[in-house]
Design a protein around this nucleic acid. Structure first.
Length: 439
RNA sequence: GUGAGCGUAGCUCAGAUGGUUAGAGCGCCAGGUUGUGGCCCUGGAGGUCGUGGGUUCGAGUCCCGUCGCUCACCCCA
């Protein structure tokens, strides 16, 4: 048997009895960390509420065409990053790689355009892209996104950007940069694209391999290519800004004006093009620090043609998505996080021959009284139980000791100073509520 | 898809040049107090050294395959 054949056999053997492990690019979020997730999600919800955005929950998978048509055939996401599969009836489905296309589909399906505009929505949930995982990039990742349909007013561009910043600030992130650009409408972009093609075509050999392809498929993307050779070629060419039609120019200038009035500082970023085809006019990114090379925390823009392209009426739209994994990561070192809360208020310990059923009842009464209560279930010594109580951060321990139990009493111990008192079993919930609120 | 680094106890890691029973700190369990936490002391449990093969008298250590992780490219959240 060749070495290679052996290797394959080993791999196959492993596939038959796979070790328990989350698949590549996915991960488990375990208790202390899961509370941080609940916290950011709560912040996102509260910020949205303040701005008048309401939650929409769309399916995690959709017909693949929702994304191929929505995001664009020539994008990296559609070309190589989608999780595609067929269900048992042969339907072509995809795990959602981003949120906007699905929200637009729902917007159309439920004819929300027939109601009062603008329709302002937000979503929270996992997205899926088949990419090589690295710092701040997972195959299943969590996004918080916002979409507003039905307003072409530059004011909503400013509002959305301001919402994004409010969110970052609310989670305690103070170091970020807003990058802003306008990529015009199909009309002015076509003119610009034509200029790019005529200027670059004669020197196509000097472009990198992928930009050579982009020249045909998506020339705008050459602008944000990081290859020095490509940059060199693009550098002397005029920016998109000078090609904007009068409407787009007016929009672009007004957005900047409003941002100024909101006191939001930004950097014009003529190279910011973004990887999804549906964007028009305003595009922006909020980038963070300390994130390695995946530094885009939040990105979005206007997509005035998307609803129509997906078969609906001509309704303008704008939105952004924020990567929560990255956000949490950039917060990890800082002090923006809330202190880890104690896991419990009260620990019920058992010493000696005290009936477990009665102790369960006691704990149950405390819990019904709204007191977070933990009890001994492992049969440890009292010493060990107190140690556990301490570790859990319990402020009080109810000691159900054999001696006092026989007299209808239990001992209450305040962990901070070790002060103890004996209390009638029936009065434990009331007394503990008192003691807890005292502090 | 491409490149580089790394896989040793639950966690963080040490194990030059291949050589006896693979170690530490933290954590966990127990004892020191037959009913009292934090500090301290003592003891204990816990390891297919990712995995398959090769070289060798002998492999955690060297070689190859493979899987995984990490970082970077690409791209994006």
């Amino acid at each position: 048997m060749s070495e290679r054949a052996r290797g394959e056999e080993a791999a196959a053997g492993k596939a038959v009895a796979p070790g328990a492990a989350a698949v590549r690019g996915t991960r488990d979020i375990l208790p202390p960390e899961s509370s941080r997730w609940q916290w950011v999600e709560g912040v996102a919800r509260r910020v949205c509420e303040r701005y008048g955005y309401r939650e929409i929950r769309t399916p995690i998978f959709e017909a693949a065409t929702v994304f191929t048509r929505g995001i664009g055939e020539a994008t990296d996401i559609v070309e190589k990053e989608m999780y595609l599969f067929r269900d048992r009836a042969g339907r072509e489905l995809a795990l959602r790689p981003e949120g906007t296309a699905g929200v637009v589909r729902a917007f159309l399906e439920h004819k929300l355009y027939a109601g009062p505009l603008p329709v302002k929505l937000f979503y929270l949930g996992p997205m899926f892209r088949y990419e090589r995982p690295q710092a701040g990039r997972y195959r299943q990742f969590e996004q918080f996104g916002v979409e507003a349909f039905g307003s072409a007013d530059p004011a909503i561009d400013a509002e959305i950007i301001s919402l994004g910043i409010a969110f970052l600030e609310a989670v305690g992130l103070d170091r970020w940069e807003l990058r802003l650009n306008s990529i015009g409408c199909p009309t002015c972009r076509a003119a610009y694209r034509e200029m790019l093609v005529t200027e670059l075509s004669p020197r196509r050999q000097e472009l990198c391999r992928s930009c050579e392809q982009r020249l045909e498929r998506n020339p705008l993307r050459i602008l944000d290519c990081k290859e020095p050779g490509c940059q060199l070629l693009v550098e002397p060419l005029p920016g998109l800004e000078s090609y904007l039609c009068s409407d787009c120019r007016a929009h672009w200038e007004t957005v900047q004006h409003y941002l100024g009035e909101l006191g939001i500082s930004y950097r014009k970023y003529p190279r910011l093009v973004r990887g999804l085809d549906y964007y028009t006019r305003t595009v922006f990114e909020l980038v963070g620090t300390g994130l390695g090379s995946q530094d885009a925390l939040l990105g979005g823009g206007r997509y005035d043609g998307l609803v129509e392209a997906m078969g609906g009426p001509s309704v303008p739209g704008i939105g952004f998505a924020a990567g929560l994994d990255r956000l949490l990561m950039s917060l990890a070192g800082g002090d923006g996080l809330p202190p880890a809360a104690a896991a419990t208020d009260v620990y019920v310990a058992r010493a000696g021959e005290v009936p477990m059923g009665a102790v369960l009842q006691l704990a149950e009464r405390l819990r019904r009284a709204g007191i977070r209560t933990e009890l001994e279930l492992a049969g440890r010594s009292l010493k060990a139980q107190l140690k556990v109580a301490d570790r859990l951060g319990a402020r009080f321990v109810v000691i159900a000791g054999e001696a006092e139990w026989a007299r209808g009493l239990v001992t209450l111990r305040r962990m901070a100073d070790g002060l103890q008192e004996e209390v009638a079993r029936t009065e434990v919930p009331g007394r503990l509520s008192e003691l807890i609120s005292e502090t």
